[in-house]
Amino acid sequence: MNEHQFAAKIGPVLDAGLRLEPAVLARLEAARGRALAAQCAGARAPATSVRDAASRRGTPVGAWAQVGLSIALLVLALGGVHFWQEARQAAAANARITEEIVEVDTRVLTGDLPIKAYLDEDFHEWLKQSSE
């Protein structure tokens, strides 16, 4: 029997429709009603635990653990990045301060005045008085 012969045979049966006895139809309808009621009751009941919720939605508990671990690792990674950035910024600030000090020290060491002129308090006093 090829495809066309099968179609020619089944076509009239489908056109005629399904004729079931009323008792069979009543049993089928009752079974459908029970199935729908059970489904509605399951959707409305509150989740009492993660395990309960996970199992109700068909999600295994291991998947929740993976999500939790991923979040923990993400937080840890963000903390690490933050620490790294702080360290970089502190290093940059130190480099700026060092650069300023190097600039001043170079001028002091290569200037015309001897170092003792910067430390001689008698000279500082004398300079103040002579400037007044």
């Binding site: 000090i101 002091v108 005045l113 001897p114 002129a117 910067y118 430390l119 500082h124």
Partner: peptide, 21 residues
């Protein structure tokens, strides 16, 4: 202290401070 004094002398004028020294 020497760096602070250097900055102060910069305000006064390095050449004048050298002459005063």
């Amino acid at each position: 202290a020497a760096r602070d004094k250097y900055r102060e002398f910069e305000q006064l004028g390095p050449e004048e401070v050298r002459l005063k020294w």
